[in-house]
Simulated assay, not measured.
Amino acid sequence: MLSDGYHDVPKGKVATVVTHLEMLSRVETRDVPAPEGWRLTRIQTPTVPWYRAIYTSVGADWLWFGRMKLPDAEIDAVLSDPKLHVYTLQKDGTDGALLELDFRVDGECELVYFGLIPELIGTGAGRFLLNAAIDAAWSEPIKRFHVYTCTLDSPQALGFYRRSGFVPIRQKIEIADDPRLTFGYDRALAPHVPIFEP
């Protein structure tokens, strides 16, 4: 348990406040079309190279690193599980989103990853994609749909999830290696997060 007050973050690390949210029954959604020319596609057998590419395209600006630090065999084991559903938005051979739903806990669905390539932000694609996530999650026999977001993500993310029917239930502090220093990420990524050299 952290005591009140300030706490130094070790050099070479990033610290973030993580907010966990949940939805305990299906909410009504307002109909929003996909951006012109884009279609929602479930990737039935995602390959590790495809997954790494879309994960980076969507998440690098926000320092997503959880899956990138895993070896290929571990990612493949996760992606091969039939209870993990992976979707994207596609247009003319381009993938523009990552939506990952995890049904591996009975009665629950976790919205593990949700994001868009920069070109789709502000087009309504986020609302369309989250509506699809809500539909897909509650089409299964679940009692709880949950997600978390953190202060490395877009500052709009927490409000977006709350407006979509998710309720905050707890917060945590996460301290991790800065991926720009340890996982080979471009040091120019996430300029909103300072780098503290070790």
Rank of each mutant, 00 (worst) to 15 (best):
G165A: 00
V48H: 08
W50G: 04
Q44Y: 05
T88G: 12
C109R: 07
V105G: 04
K143S: 12
R39E: 06
T94K: 14
F160Y: 10
L181S: 13
L99K: 04
Q171G: 14
E22Q: 15
S57T: 02
I54H: 05
P35T: 06
E28S: 12
V78Q: 10
A60Q: 13
F183C: 05
W138L: 01
T151E: 04
A176F: 12
R67M: 11
G66C: 13
I142A: 04
Q156C: 00
D8N: 15
I117N: 02
I169M: 03
Y148S: 13
V14M: 13
L24N: 07
L130A: 00
S57M: 08
R30D: 03
E108P: 00
P49L: 03
T47I: 03
D31R: 00
E174Q: 10
L24R: 07
L63R: 10
K143F: 03
C109I: 05
A190L: 00
R144K: 13
G66S: 12
V58E: 05
A176S: 15
L2D: 10
I117C: 03
L84I: 15
N131R: 05
W138H: 01
L181G: 11
P35A: 05
L84N: 14
W138T: 09
S154W: 01
I173A: 10
D153V: 00
S164Q: 02
Y55V: 01
G122Q: 02
V27C: 10
Y161T: 04
P194W: 00
V78T: 11
G107I: 06
D81L: 09
C150K: 01
L111W: 05
